[in-house]
Nucleic acid binder design. Structure first.
Length: 923
RNA sequence: GGUCGCGUAGCUCAGCUGGUUAGAGCGCUGCUUUCACACAGCAGAGGUCCGGGGUUCGAGUCCCUGCGCGACCACCA
C-alpha cells in the first residue's frame, strides 16, 4: 500500500474536485482491464464475468436512459469484480445506420443539399469524418459517470474487425440457405427512402376514415359492388375485388368483371376465404398486391398482376405494370394529397358511397415517424424460424432467464410467431451487402472477399447497392467484440459466453432476441444466461424523458450539482425490478435528494470515524480476544453479517450452476434497490445511529477497550464501504483508502478489494437491543412530557417486574449505563424509587421509569394509558381467538403457532402492566 | 382484436412461495443548531392495501367480477 499524506478530510465532500482525478487513477492502475489468462476457461484461477454494453449510437449524447442503463451494468460488474471474478465490461458504439445517416442528411439539408448532391462516396466519407470527430463523446461521458469498462477493448460496429464479422455472418447464413432474395411487399419509408423490418415499422393508433367506393360491373353498369378502404389512392393499383366464397351477398358476382373508376381498367371479382372477412366493411375487398401485404398474398395465390402506382418518394406514379392507370393530373402528387383528390374524383363520378370515421393502427418509421408505405420490392431476407428454435428452447430449458419474468412471455410469443427479417436497407451508411451480380451471365456471388470478376464467365461484376440493417451487426456483438470470426482467440475462450445482458425492453426484439439467435447459430451457445430489462426514465407525468420533448435531465448537470455518486445512488435506490424511474426535470434538488443526502451522510460518518479512530493501524478482528468484545461490538458485527446476507440475497446468484438455472434461483437476484437499502440501513441506521454513538465514551477513555472499539469501528466501516462501492465508487474509495486497517492482503483500491463475507463468530446478538429499547423509551418519555432538551433528568431501570430476567437485565444496563446516560441525556441507574413517575415496559419485562413529581399530568397520562389499553385489548382478543381456534393451531405451521403463542404471552404481560398503570393513574 | 401487467401513506414505490401491530425514500407536523452530520437528530401524523364477491383457521398476497390505468403484439381492408 502506497503511503499517502495524512490530510484532514474537508468538512464537506466536493465530488467535482476529486472525481476526474480518481477515475484517471483507476484507469492508470488498470483496475478495469480484464485478463483472459486469468479466466478459468483458459486455465486461470477466476470465474469470468462478462457484460457487453448495449452500444449507444455513435452520434448519441448522454441522457438519463444511458445513465440508468450504464449505472446498472457498472454496479453489477463492480460487484462481481470484488467478488473475485475476472470481470469484463466491454464497451462500444453502434454505427446506427439509419439514425446516423439521418443526422448527416439533416446537416446537408441545412446547407440546402441532399445526399444525392454529394454522391455515395463523398457522403460516406463525410459521415465517417463526423463519426471520427464526435463518435467518442458518449463514451467520454460514460467515463464521467464512473463506468468501469475495459476501454482497451472498445468496439465499434463499423470497424474493420466487426465488418469482417458481419461479412462472415452473411456468408455463413447464405451458405446455410438462411439468407435469400425475396420479392414481396415490405415496409417502405418514403422519407428515408429505404425499406424497414417489421420491428422498425411501429404501430400507432390513429383516427382515419373508411371510404366506401362503388365499382360497377363492366357488362352491367346498373349493378355494382362496394368496397371499403382506408387508402383510396391505392385503388388505382387494384387488380381484383375479393369476396368470401360463402358470402351470400356476392356469390352471384364471383367471376364477373368490374371497371375500376378513374383508372378505367377492368378487373375480376374473385373469391378468397383466407384474406376476406365478410364481417368487416362491406365484405368486399379491393386487391392491391403491390401496396398491401395481405393483398400481395392474395394476389400471389390468384396469380394476379401487381401494378405499382407509388414512387419511392411516396408520390403517384405509373410504375412497373401500371400502364397509364394513374391519370396525368395525379402524377407526381404526394400520396396524402392524392388521397383527397381521388376522393373528389370518385365523388364526381358518383362512385363514392360514404366516408365513415375509422380508427386503425398505422405504421410509422421508427426513425423519422413518417407513415410507412407497403411497397413491392426485392430485398434480402433472413429465414428466421430455424434460428428461433434454439433461442426458444434455451429459455424453456432455463439456460436463459429474462427478468422481470413477464418479458419472458413476450419473448416467447415473438419467437413463436417470428417472420423473416428484411435486412436490406436502401441507405449508404452501413455494411454494404456482400453480394455481387454478373451482368453477363446473371451469376450471383456471395463472398468473403470482394471479387474482381465473375467466377463463372469472367465478366464484370457489380456489388449490391444496399447496406445491411444496422441490427445485423448488433446481433453479433457478444462475440464479434471478442474477436470472432477468428477462432479460439484467448478472449473468445475466456469470455464467451458472457453473463448478463442489461438493457431496456424496447429492444428486446430488435437486439436481445436476435443476439440469442445469433449466439446459437454462429457460436453454438447462448450469448448470456441472464437478460435484465430495466425500466424507463420518466418525468412526474410518467412521460418518457426525451430531448425533443424537453423533459430530459442531463446526467452531467446532476453530476455537476451533486456528484456522480449521488446520481448513481438515486437511480439504483429507486430501481425496483422492472419498475420505471420517475424524476422531476424541474426539481433536481428533490429528485436527487436521496443520493445527495446519503453521500453527505456517508461523508460525515467517514470523517468522524477517521478522526476518532486516528491513523494508527487497528488490530484485525481475529487477533482480538472475543471475551473483550462488548455487547455493542457483538451487536454491530452481527448486524453486519445480516447486511452482508441481505446484500448477497438481493444481488445473486451471479450465474447458474452448470449453465442451467434452478427453479428457485430463476427469479432471484439483481434486486438492486433491495441491495442498496440493506447497505444503507446498515451504515446509517445501525453503524452511525447506534454503534458509533456507543463507542464515543470508549474511544475517549482509550485503553484496551478503546482499542477494541477502534478495531470494530474500522472493520465495520471497511465492510460497509465495500458493500457500497459498486453503487458509490468515488466516495467509498476516498474514505476506504484512509482507514487504518491492514490485514496483510488489503488492495490499494477498494474497487479490487474483496467482497465482504459473513463471520459466523458473530450471530444473533440480541442483548444490545434491550439497550436500544431503553434509550428509545427514555426519548419517548422525554418527548411525551415535553422535557426541555437541555434538562438533565433522572431515569431508572426497574427490574422488579422481571424477576426471571432481573440479573441479566441488571448486568446489561450496568455495562452500558454511561452510553444510555449520554445519549438519552439523563442520569441513569437502577433505582427503585417510589416517586410518582412515568414508565415504559421493555420487552424483557423490565421497566424504564422517570420520576415526574409535580410535573406529571395525571389525567393526560390516564387517558393515554386507557387508549393504549383499549387498543391492546382489541388486538389481544383477536389473538386469543386465533389461538383458541383449532383450525389455526392444527393447520398452521408449528413455527407460526409458536410465534403467536410467544406473542400472546408478551401481550398478556404487557396488558397486566398497562392495567396496573391505569388503575394507579385513574384511581 | 390478441397477450400480459398495474391500481398499497400526499408523491415514487417495496411487500418474493398466504402467517409479527403493512414498510422505505421524498414530502408533512413539532422540538432541537447537543462538541461527525440541520443534505442532521429526536418524537410524530398520515393507509377501509381501487370497489364487490369467493377460497381459507387466516388474504395486501390466491380465484372470480366490476371500475380505472398501462405495456407489448397484430396483414380487419
Amino acid at each position: 500500500m502506497t503511503a499517502r499524506p495524512e490530510t484532514q478530510l474537508p468538512t464537506t465532500f466536493n465530488p467535482s474536485e476529486v472525481e476526474a482525478d480518481l477515475y484517471k487513477e483507476w484507469l492508470d492502475a488498470g483496475l478495469f482491464t480484464a485478463d483472459p489468462a486469468r479466466s478459468r476457461r483458459n486455465g486461470g484461477d477466476r470465474e469470468p464475468f462478462v457484460i457487453v454494453m448495449p452500444p449507444p449510437n455513435v452520434t448519441a449524447v448522454l441522457h438519463m436512459g444511458h445513465g440508468l442503463n450504464n449505472t446498472v451494468q457498472d454496479v453489477i460488474i463492480r460487484w462481481r469484480r470484488m467478488a473475485g471474478d475476472e470481470a469484463l465490461w466491454l464497451p462500444g458504439t453502434d454505427h446506427a445506420g439509419i439514425a446516423t445517416q439521418n443526422v448527416i442528411e439533416k446537416q446537408l439539408a441545412g446547407e440546402g443539399k441532399t445526399r444525392f448532391d454529394l454522391g455515395r462516396e463523398a457522403f460516406v466519407a463525410r459521415t465517417s469524418d463526423f463519426v471520427a470527430e464526435t463518435g467518442g463523446t458518449i463514451l467520454e461521458q460514460l467515463r464521467a459517470i464512473g463506468a468501469s469498462c475495459d476501454w482497451t477493448r472498445t468496439a465499434y460496429t463499423l470497424s474493420p474487425e466487426l465488418s469482417s464479422a458481419v461479412r462472415e455472418a452473411f456468408v455463413l447464413l447464405y451458405e446455410a440457405g438462411l439468407i435469400y432474395r425475396g420479392h414481396r411487399v415490405i415496409h417502405w419509408c418514403s422519407r428515408c427512402l429505404t425499406s424497414l423490418s417489421d420491428e422498425e415499422a411501429e404501430h400507432s393508433e390513429e383516427t382515419g376514415a373508411l371510404y366506401h367506393i362503388r365499382y360497377s360491373l363492366s357488362d352491367d353498369p346498373e349493378k355494382s359492388i362496394t368496397i371499403a378502404t382506408t387508402r383510396p389512392e391505392t385503388m388505382l393499383a387494384d387488380v381484383a375485388v375479393a369476396v368470401h366464397p360463402d358470402d351470400e351477398r356476392y356469390r352471384d358476382l364471383i367471376g364477373r368483371t368490374v371497371t375500376l373508376p378513374i383508372a378505367d381498367v377492368a378487373i375480376p371479382i374473385i373469391a378468397d376465404s383466407i384474406g376476406v372477412d365478410p364481417e368487416f366493411g362491406t365484405g368486399a375487398v379491393k386487391i392491391t398486391p403491390a401496396h398491401d401485404a395481405n393483398d400481395f398474398d392474395m394476389g400471389s395465390r390468384h396469380r394476379l398482376p401487381m401494378p405499382v402506382v407509388l414512387s419511392p418518394e411516396g408520390t403517384m406514379a405509373n410504375g412497373a405494370d401500371a400502364g397509364t392507370r394513374v391519370p396525368p393530373e395525379l402524377l407526381g402528387i404526394d400520396r396524402f394529397e392524392a388521397r383527397e383528390r381521388v376522393v373528389q374524383m370518385l365523388k364526381h363520378l358518383g362512385a363514392l358511397v360514404k366516408i365513415e370515421p375509422h380508427t386503425h393502427a398505422v405504421r410509422h418509421c421508427y426513425r423519422c415517424d413518417t407513415v410507412v408505405e407497403p411497397r413491392l420490392s426485392d430485398q434480402w431476407f433472413v429465414k428466421m424460424r430455424p434460428l428461433a428454435e434454439p433461442a426458444l428452447k434455451a429459455v424453456h430449458d432455463r439456460r436463459i432467464r429474462i427478468l422481470p419474468e413477464r418479458w419472458e412471455a413476450v419473448y416467447i410469443n415473438w419467437l413463436e410467431n417470428i417472420r423473416d427479417w428484411n435486412i436490406s436497407r436502401q441507405l449508404w451508411w452501413g455494411h454494404r451487402i456482400p453480394v455481387w451480380y454478373c451482368d453477363s451471365c446473371s451469376n450471383v456471388i456471395v463472398a468473403r472477399n470482394d471479387p474482381s470478376a465473375c467466377d463463372k464467365c469472367g465478366g464484370a461484376v457489380r456489388q449490391d447497392e444496399d447496406v445491411l440493417d444496422t441490427w445485423f451487426s448488433s446481433w453479433l456483438w457478444p462475440f464479434s467484440t471478442l474477436g470472432w470470426p477468428q477462432k479460439n482467440t484467448p478472449d473468445i475462450k475466456a469470455f464467451y459466453p458472457t453473463d448478463d445482458l442489461v438493457t431496456a425492453p424496447e429492444i428486446l426484439f430488435f437486439w436481445v432476441a436476435r443476439m440469442i439467435m445469433g449466439g446459437f447459430f454462429f457460436m453454438g451457445e447462448t450469448p448470456f444466461h441472464t437478460v435484465y430489462l430495466h425500466g424507463t426514465v420518466r418525468d412526474m407525468k410518467h412521460v418518457k424523458m426525451s430531448k425533443s420533448l424537453g423533459n430530459g435531465i442531463d446526467p452531467l448537470d446532476v453530476r455537476a450539482l451533486f456528484g456522480t455518486d449521488a446520481l448513481r445512488y438515486t437511480v439504483i435506490a429507486g430501481l425496483g425490478m422492472g419498475a420505471d424511474v420517475m424524476l422531476d426535470p424541474n426539481d433536481l434538488e428533490k429528485s436527487f435528494a436521496p443520493g445527495r443526502n446519503f453521500v453527505t451522510k456517508l461523508w460525515k460518518i467517514g470523517r468522524f470515524l477517521l478522526t476518532n479512530v486516528g491513523s494508527e493501524k487497528v488490530q484485525t478482528l481475529d487477533r482480538i480476544d472475543h471475551s473483550r468484545l462488548r455487547r455493542a461490538d457483538r451487536w454491530i458485527l452481527s448486524s453486519l453479517n445480516t447486511a452482508i446476507d441481505e446484500c448477497n440475497a438481493a444481488l445473486g446468484p451471479a450465474r447458474p450452476d452448470r449453465g442451467v438455472w434452478k427453479e428457485n434461483e430463476l427469479r432471484s437476484g439483481l434486486r438492486l434497490s433491495e441491495y442498496t437499502e440493506a447497505a444503507r440501513r446498515f451504515v446509517w441506521n445501525e453503524l452511525a445511529d447506534w454503534y458509533l454513538e456507543s463507542t464515543k465514551g470508549r474511544l475517549a477513555a482509550g485503553g484496551e477497550d478503546g482499542e477494541v472499539a477502534r478495531a470494530v469501528l474500522a472493520h465495520s466501516f471497511d465492510s460497509a464501504l465495500r458493500l457500497l462501492q459498486p453503487i458509490v465508487p468515488f466516495i467509498t474509495d476516498i474514505l476506504w483508502r484512509r482507514l487504518p486497517v491492514d490485514d496483510g492482503e488489503r488492495d490499494e483500491y477498494i474497487a479490487r478489494a474483496s467482497w465482504p463475507a459473513r463471520n459466523d463468530a458473530f450471530n444473533g446478538e440480541q442483548e444490545f437491543e434491550l439497550v436500544r429499547e431503553a434509550i428509545n423509551a427514555i426519548r419517548q418519555l422525554r418527548a411525551d412530557y415535553a422535557i426541555a432538551p437541555g434538562e438533565r433528568i433522572h431515569a431508572s431501570l426497574d427490574v422488579s417486574a422481571a424477576a426471571s430476567n432481573a440479573d441479566r437485565d441488571r448486568a446489561i444496563f450496568d455495562d452500558d449505563s454511561d452510553f444510555i446516560a449520554r445519549i438519552a441525556r439523563c442520569d441513569f441507574g437502577e433505582v427503585n424509587d417510589s416517586e410518582a413517575g412515568a414508565s415504559i415496559l421493555l420487552s424483557s419485562g423490565s421497566r424504564i421509569r422517570i420520576p415526574l413529581a409535580g410535573v406529571i399530568d395525571i389525567e393526560k397520562e390516564c387517558r393515554k394509558a386507557r387508549t393504549e389499553l383499549e387498543k391492546l385489548d382489541a388486538q389481544l382478543t383477536a389473538l386469543d381467538a386465533r389461538l383458541a381456534n383449532p383450525g389455526f393451531t392444527d393447520r398452521a405451521p408449528a413455527n407460526v403457532v409458536a410465534q403467536e403463542r410467544a406473542k400472546q404471552l408478551d401481550w398478556r404481560a404487557r396488558r397486566a402492566q398497562l392495567s396496573d398503570k391505569v388503575t394507579s393513574l385513574c384511581g
